[in-house]
Write a protein that binds this DNA or RNA. Structure first.
Lengths: 337, 337
DNA sequence: ATGAAAGCGCTAACAC
DNA sequence: GTGTTAGCGCTTTCAT
């Protein structure tokens, strides 16, 4: 195992001082171009690699962004992370990622880990469990910027990047009404998260406007299994729905499959709209009408905002809320000819 | 922005030396229990957090494991990472994750990043592009252990953790034969990756044993789209297949949907088997027969092996190859009554 | 059981 | 344009 090469080794080799080598490696304008070239090629030749720890210790920065998300295994999250990674790498930062697995305790633990790793900034999406954000306060104390995306706190001074949940739900519901639905259910989650609360509000707005009948049904979890499970209960209601707007695609697919098993025609007996534009939405038959939006854009914007702030390229208090567009994708599960 | 608390601050507060504080915090047996308690509570009270960089600079270790994977957005990968995270956290290490996005160049770049971040060890799954692993050689030079999982190099002295691709493909093919298929296609990827090569070999073994007709068809990419696209071409063949074994579930679902669109009955005209036990396999109708295996176990084993080595709890040259079990899950897409 | 002191490798203020 | 120097916060050898 060969010893590590340091800037001192390079300095000795070239009869320079360590500081000159350091500056040359950092492309400092004060250094002669010829010197820079010599230093770089020598560093290359000697197999030098910068010691991040010494540098971080000295500069009190880590060039690392911490990302805390509920889970990584969704298309939306992958897209967000891909967007962030682009920006972050481009600006010379690293990214460390942790999952809260929808547990507030784990989220708090992750925040502490990031804090101890002295990340320069944090990008987070909250659990559905609660939107208590006390565990983020330590970052404020040390002036470490935090931005939230998708699942954001109810009240905060931090920058937030969300999709237009209210408008999307309004549009989805209105679409069902336009297809002739008179009695619409919204299946969602009982939580304090803005994501689901805003969708509920959008749903209600559309229902009230149309003077149509509407009700909310809460699922334990928005997945295939619980989507399937809820259908028998729904079919026992005295007033049968003719349209269902589900807050995510997997649960919507669960409903669709369960309805078909009961011999109910989708969309003619009951029309269905989902949310997310998950790949499964094109696999089921009939294909699922859903709401599409760009996780990548959300990731890019959140990361950009954070890094601009770190590089002093934005105002101290740019604690804005950015709302991203969504599109309704009309497919066969809701289209009545 | 409050100044950082260091061990010197604690030392001054308690009239001790920094070394004693350091030892107390590290639970060094030489330190009096009473002193340890005082130090710990004082550290807590003063909001002390250990400076990883100073520590790493001093100890020349990072307690960080680097993970390089093709992509994170698959169920298999999420499961692997979850398994790794369990082990790694439990042993007091951190994990940094990067994606190669199936590009050899990006994989090499990621390796360099990890190298410069001085990870203590590396866990990697290769791209399909090629299994050139020259960019991992730098780790060997510095005695940084590397283990591979799932997509592993053809020849290597490093530890490898793979699923029994050969046997799984053999079992899947044999299952089709047992269902009466006489003319079976295997849809897969043209690559040097062990994962797909081994499956091809398993397929061939089963075909030859049964004295049955079999052929390989290469897709551009194993996804829904290319699964759908290949079906018209397959239906133009002079000899029509009566069974298809597809190397992943998404592509298998693509085939299934395209076949149904052509009015072909699955499983009676053509039986289908996939690979991965992806959630979509239970969403399609008929449900997809597939191969299931535990990514989590693979992750746990790989991480354990690496960390045991780092903690000197295993032999220097434990360069073994571990093969994990798989199960055939028989569902309606291949079962002929 | 505790302390003193040196040094890990880098950067930046200051000097020339 | 380049060198000198001090110090970031921690660990660890050696001494007591």
């Amino acid at each position: 195992m060969s010893r590590e090469v340091t800037i001192y080794d390079i300095a000795k080799e070239l009869n320079l001082s360590a500081s000159t080598v350091s500056r040359a490696l950092k492309d400092n304008p004060a250094i002669n171009n010829e010197t820079k070239k010599r230093v770089r090629s020598c560093a290359e030749k000697m197999g030098y690699r910068s010691n991040t720890f010494a540098s971080n210790l000295r500069t009190q920065r880590t060039n690392t962004i911490g990302v805390i998300v509920p889970r990584l295994d969704s298309n939306f999250m992958s897209a967000c992370l891909a967007g962030m990674e682009e920006v972050v790498n481009d600006k010379g930062y690293n990214m460390i990622i942790t999952q809260s697995h929808e547990s507030l305790a784990k989220e708090a633990q992750n925040a502490i880990t990031m804090f101890n790793n002295r990340v320069d900034g944090v990008i987070a999406s909250l659990t559905i469990e609660d939107n208590n954000i006390d565990h983020f306060s330590r970052f404020k104390d040390k002036n470490v910027p935090v931005v939230f995306f998708d699942r954001v706190p109810e009240k905060t001074n931090n920058a937030c990047f969300v999709i237009e949940n209210h408008k999307a739900a309004y549009t989805a519901t209105k679409h069902l009404i336009e297809q002739g639905c008179k009695n619409i259910l919204h299946l969602t989650l009982k939580t304090k998260s803005n994501v689901y609360l805003d969708r509920i509000e959008g749903f209600k707005t559309a229902i009230n406007e149309a003077n149509c009948s509407g009700d909310i049904v809460y699922l334990e979890s928005l997945n295939l299994e619980f989507g399937e499970k809820i259908i028998p209960q729904i079919l026992k209601r005295k007033e049968q729905p003719d349209g269902i707007f589900v807050a995510n695609d997997m649960a919507a697919v669960g409903c669709l499959l369960a309805l078909q098993k009961e011999g109910i025609n989708v969309p003619n007996d009951i029309a269905i709209v989902g949310f997310n534009n998950d790949p499964v939405s094109t696999i089921v038959h009939p294909q699922l009408t859903t709401i599409s939006y760009s996780g990548k854009d959300a990731g890019i914007l959140a990361a950009k905002s954070l890094i601009d702030y770190l590089n002093n390229e934005s105002e101290e208090g740019s604690s804005k809320k950015v709302v991203l567009n969504t599109q309704l994708i009309e497919r066969a599960s809701s289209k009545r000819k």
